[in-house]
């Protein structure tokens, strides 16, 4: 049953198939977030003043902290990749787990932020700004969570056994993408008042 499939071992472009697929996944994700952000922007331009008043209620400090956690985690995932290139399992796992930890910080701050906002009466239904806010940051947070789970699986399932080293690079690409989405969301939702 589990014989080798020739197709998976070919690489006519010179790019490993897994990485190529991750690039295409990222391409399609860009369009999903792009559609959401473009819709937000169109609305924002149309309802300028009233949305600015709503946007003034987001917590820029927590948003900035979360930007810091994610950007630092991107650095760590690069270290993880560098360690995986050297086939250094201990270091790779350490850097992956540090990345996951920072992702955890991000999610924790996000949870605190959502809770306070909801307590202050800013829910998904308060206004369209808040609908966009929760939908966009929620979808992004879901991507962060998925990335953390996949990284844990790679660290404990693959790197511990010393196999599938290329997956560190692939998840790193995805993680950078998730960061870049946040780089767009942060100014749009938190800074622009």
């Amino acid at each position: 049953m589990a014989h080798q499939i020739i197709a998976t071992s070919r690489s006519r472009t010179g790019i490993p198939t897994g990485r190529l697929a991750v690039w295409w996944v990222i391409g399609s994700e860009i369009l999903i977030f792009g559609g959401l952000i473009a819709s937000y922007l169109l609305n924002r331009f149309n309802h300028g003043p009233s949305w600015s008043i709503e946007a003034a209620n987001t917590n820029t400090f927590i948003g900035a902290c979360n930007t810091f956690w994610l950007l630092t985690s991107s650095l760590f995932v690069v270290y993880a990749h560098a360690a995986s290139e050297r086939r250094d399992a201990a270091k790779t796992r350490m850097w992956i787990w540090l990345t996951i930890m920072l992702g955890g910080f991000f999610m924790g701050f996000k949870a605190y932020e959502y809770t306070t906002e909801i307590h202050h009466g800013f829910t998904l239904f308060t206004s369209n700004f808040w609908s966009f806010y929760y939908t966009a940051t929620g979808l992004h947070g879901f991507h962060v969570l998925c990335g953390m789970v996949i990284m844990a699986i790679i660290a404990e399932g693959d790197i511990k056994k010393g196999q599938n080293w290329h997956r560190v690079e692939n998840i790193g690409l995805y993680w950078h993408f998730v960061d870049i989405v946040w780089i767009f969301l942060f100014p749009l939702m938190y800074i622009a008042k």
Partner: peptide
């Protein structure tokens, strides 16, 4: 792939 993203959103 390029057209369906905004529809998913």
């Amino acid at each position: 792939m390029c057209s369906v993203g905004p529809l998913i959103a």
